[in-house]
Design a protein around this nucleic acid. Sequence first.
DNA 1: TTGTAGGCGTTATCAC
DNA 2: GTGATAACGCCTACAA
Lengths: 342, 342
Amino acid sequence: MQKEVTIYDIAKQLQLSPATVSRALNDHPAINSNTKTLITSKALEMGYRSNLFASNLRRQRTNTIGVIVPRLDSSFMSTVLAGMEKVVNESSYNLIISQSLESVKKEVTNAKTMFDSRVDGLLVSLASDTENLDHFNPFFKKGIPLILFDRVVQQKNCTNIIIDNLKAGYDATTHLIQQGCKRIMHVSGSLKRNVYADRLKGYKLALLEHGLPSGDELERVTNLTRQDGLDVAAYIKRMPNPPDGLFISSDFCAVSCIGALKQSGFSVPNDIAVVGFNNDPVSLVIDPNLTTIHYPGQEMGEIAAQSLINHLNGLLRLSATNTILLNYDLIIRESSQRPKLS
Amino acid sequence: MQKEVTIYDIAKQLQLSPATVSRALNDHPAINSNTKTLITSKALEMGYRSNLFASNLRRQRTNTIGVIVPRLDSSFMSTVLAGMEKVVNESSYNLIISQSLESVKKEVTNAKTMFDSRVDGLLVSLASDTENLDHFNPFFKKGIPLILFDRVVQQKNCTNIIIDNLKAGYDATTHLIQQGCKRIMHVSGSLKRNVYADRLKGYKLALLEHGLPSGDELERVTNLTRQDGLDVAAYIKRMPNPPDGLFISSDFCAVSCIGALKQSGFSVPNDIAVVGFNNDPVSLVIDPNLTTIHYPGQEMGEIAAQSLINHLNGLLRLSATNTILLNYDLIIRESSQRPKLS
DNA sequence: TTGTAGGCGTTATCAC
DNA sequence: GTGATAACGCCTACAA
């Protein structure tokens, strides 16, 4: 365990003061560029690495950003985190990542841990049963910025980064309508979450505009698990008047539902056309390949992290009602394409 | 932005010295238990939270553990990380998580970041193309412990936490043999990684023991992607003498392969019985449900984290050649079950 | 453009 | 069982 090199060691070697070394390493403008290069090369040579803890202690900030997501095991979240990581690495911040596993309780614990770790800011996507942001009050009180992404809640104090889920739901449903569907069912997740509530609204709006039937028996609120997909299929089988179109707010659930529907003798897309959401890799595994909504996780992560960092560096004021909308794509595959009725 | 409460504030209020407060909060044995409760309750009342950075600076350790995984978007990794998180939270350590996205290059960068963050220890699962551990040399030189899990490399200095992949490969293959398969093919991932190399060995061993044919045309080394699954199916279709059993080292790849095989007119399991690996949720989506090997991610994460923490706390010496083996299960589902030939 | 000096909040060492 | 004090390594007024 050799001793760490400090700015004092560099200063001594170069006959300079530690202050100058510190400034040079932080690229302070008032330092002669010659001494600057001298110092940085010496630092490299000596294997110096800056001590974040001393620095953090002194400047009263941690250079750490906390991330709380519902789960890590989705390809979407993985790309979001990759995006955040990219931005954060370039800015010499650190990331602390934790998962709530869709439980408020764990989310509260995570928030507390983040608070105790004194993160400079927080990037959060809410658990499915989170009712409010009370557990983030300590952050608000201290003026620690919080950015919500994907699963958000409208609230002053925090920026939201989302896609237009209402419009996406509308587009998905409209696509089914254009394929000739007359009776379209929607399978949603917890309506506490904007992503699901908004998609449902978009679905309803599309139905309304085209004068198609809607109503409780065509709307299922579930947890969007594999089992829920199976249950929905069973439900459809029991329906006296089953739907000919199905919009499910999650690919994974959609895929398990399609499997069960096929087993029950339904043909997809001919009897029932299906659209999912998220463009999960599993959408390419199922036969027929699943039509779905794709949206850019990497970009969402980058923007969330960048906005937070800009705010922390004083380059951007996150105003109270700031919402950033990203684009999405409807990816049309076999599961929804029906022969044109002419 | 109200001011932070420090041990000085507590000390002043209680007419004690900061030293005593510090000791009490750290549960030092030489402190009167009355003063101890007095101090802790006062600390709570004043909303004190300890400053990790001052503490870290002073004790010369960071209380942070770094984790590098190939990808976050697998249900297996997600449970591993949940396990680590659990242990780490209970021990008041912090976790810094990053993904290499299966690239050595990124893994090297990640390692550097971890080094600069002065993690106390490292938990790593290697990228698919990592050749050696040179990029971890700075850690070895400094005596920073490194634990490898799942995707490991035998090397002095680091503990490995794995399942017996050879035996698992053997068991998977033997299961196919017991189902009556006579010509079994194996689809593997990069043989640089123990997990794939060992499963291949187990597969070969099982074939050898039962006098079944093996050879290059029955062994495919791939990246285990969706496309690789399709390619394998196409390859099988072209084979003059196709296999009647298929052991694929990843569920996701297996599932895409099954899809393509079915499209080519093969029946699974009747023409070809299939076994995957990892018990990914997708194994329950495909029809027929996929037989696979399950192993405990949560436990692997917990053990990895706990071992590291015990080592850091001096409770356990990670000896040079320490390998911890976990159990696994063969989960038999429809994809491999053939009618008994009697 | 560079140097001086004090302090960020803890904890470890040494006293008493 | 408790207190005084000196670091840990860095940054930043302020001075030169």
